[in-house]
Simulated assay, not measured.
Amino acid sequence: MLSDPDRRTVRALESALLSDRAFARAVLPVTRCLQALSGPVVVGVADGGSLPALHWAAAEAARRERPLRVVHALCTPLVLDPYGVVPAAVDPRARDAAAARLLGAALAEVRRTAPEVQVTGDVVRGPARRVLPAESRDACLLVLGSRRDGRRSPLRPGTSLPRSVAGTAGCPVAVVPAPDGVDPGGRESRVVVGVDGSAHTAAAVGFAFATAARRGAALTAVHAWCPDRPADLEAVAAPPATTEAAARALLDDAVGRWRALHPDVPCRTEVVRGDPVAALLTAGAGAALLVVGSRGRRGVLATLRGSVGRAVVGGAAGPVVVVRHGTGQAPRWGAGPSRTTRIGTGRPPWTPSPSSS
């Protein structure tokens, strides 16, 4: 794996080469494939609720035969006082030592439960909402833990770190809820993917087929439809049977090309009349994985227009992977190094100190 200076040098070279648009158009398809194949699985850990995500990430890294990178974002808390915003009165050495212990415990747990996986880790200074998207740029998958809030309806997901990061990450994001997010044998060997026929779900369908092939699992593709509304004052609308037939044709077309690429994956389609969030949560109940696409909307636009992916992440009882539109297809070449800083240990990055293991 590359050190931080090496990665900065590579990005500088990429920026210089890809400033030539003709060269960029020729080489980007190859680099996209290489990035998706060669990156590590990255998992974010924090105090409490991270163990299911850690186990799930280790199992996924073993399936993909990729290394696992464990990241803990260490953000200095701020407090308000009459004179302005000042750092909280917390001993930095005690905070750093606690972060190192947390990381060391996570690494030890992975080595105990998945000894075949090459695992490394870092404590990275900065807010998780900035650290994790930066880490995702070189990853094939980012894994996060999540706590479900039973007081909130899944149709009104609100805001949370996993939903925020999923909208900005540079790779697919897996959200593993506690307590039933561990990759157990009790869950069905079945992958479910939501399809709406738009361009942003094509990557999600491809990801779902590849995941099902890797796991030796069956795939269920779900498309929800609603009857046409009248187009004018005369209440002219297509009959429900016509709309349903069009929905079936759309779903068959969306999965047809991937069936040809993965002929060994058993795939069945479900066309459901009703709300897409409810349809996906029902179809994904008990499944090993639920895959949804995302346009990557953020802030007010996502709140006003809504997001099926955000709602599914908030309501699903099992692991959900959000594949953002353009994920793995438009790397941020020349973006430069992240402004987050690492806690120095005198050792190469991604290698924990002996006292943390």
Rank of each mutant, 00 (worst) to 15 (best):
V322P: 06
G293P: 03
A166R: 03
R63T: 13
A61F: 05
L261K: 13
A108M: 04
G296H: 03
G150L: 12
R332C: 11
G256V: 03
G256Q: 09
V175Q: 00
G170M: 02
S198F: 04
Q329M: 09
Y83Q: 12
P52E: 08
L144S: 06
T159V: 15
G336A: 07
A53E: 07
S3I: 05
G318D: 04
V205W: 00
G197M: 04
G336W: 10
R152Q: 13
L2G: 09
S164F: 12
A311K: 00
V193S: 04
A88Y: 05
A311L: 00
L107E: 06
A217G: 05
G284L: 00
R297N: 04
L68G: 08
V236K: 08
V175E: 00
V90P: 06
V191Q: 03
T242L: 12
P87H: 12
L54Y: 10
A57V: 09
L161G: 02
A199W: 07
V191C: 01
V85Q: 13
S160K: 02
D232V: 02
V323L: 05
G185E: 14
P337T: 10
L155W: 13
A218V: 10
W225V: 00
G126T: 09
V321W: 09
S146Q: 15
A99L: 05
G181A: 01
R66P: 05
C267R: 03
D253C: 07
R339K: 12
A199H: 14
R324K: 10
R147C: 07
T243R: 12
A97C: 06
V110D: 01
A217D: 15
A97Q: 15
R129V: 12
A62P: 11
R129P: 00
P227C: 02
A16F: 08
A128D: 09
A22M: 09
S356W: 14
D183T: 03
R295G: 09
S164P: 02
A260E: 14
